[in-house]
């Protein structure tokens, strides 16, 4: 007990100075999704299995698909990643997703030019 008290007295604060110092997320953390349009074949298995209906795959041209992900609806379960046979979806460790404007929570992943992965806010 006394040892604990002395130890706690001299040790650094356990808290992080957040914006300056960011915690490293554990390996395998399920954060924001990324979508690789060039791999997607449009089978829509991800849409079917998503528990919250957060992901929508739209056909934008022949053999070209875009993914609209509602970050506010997504529960970051990564079921869509498991369901995708083409590995067109992946999780990242990105956790700083808070927005004041709920429109910004809708993110569109699509390809503007050939095989170029782009990410933009939904209009």
């Amino acid at each position: 007990m006394i040892r604990q008290v002395l130890y706690s007295l001299f040790k650094k604060p356990a808290t992080n100075l957040y914006p300056a110092q960011k915690l490293e997320m554990p390996k395998g953390y399920r954060g924001k999704l990324v979508f690789y349009p060039e791999k997607c074949i449009g089978c829509k298995m991800c849409m079917k299995d998503c528990p919250t209906g957060a992901i929508t795959i739209n056909k934008i041209a022949e053999k070209k698909f875009e993914a609209v992900i509602d970050l506010g609806k997504c529960i970051y379960c990564a079921q869509c990643v498991d369901s995708c046979i083409k590995k067109a979806l992946e999780v990242t460790k990105d956790v700083t997703l808070a927005q004041l404007d709920d429109k910004k929570l809708k993110v569109v992943f699509g390809s503007d030019s050939e095989n170029n992965r782009t990410e933009k806010q939904a209009p």
Binding site: K48, D49, P51, C77, Q79, S83
Partner: peptide, 8 residues
């Protein structure tokens, strides 16, 4: 919901 969705 489907069984897979139910898990979550």
């Amino acid at each position: 919901r489907t069984y897979i969705q139910d898990i979550y």
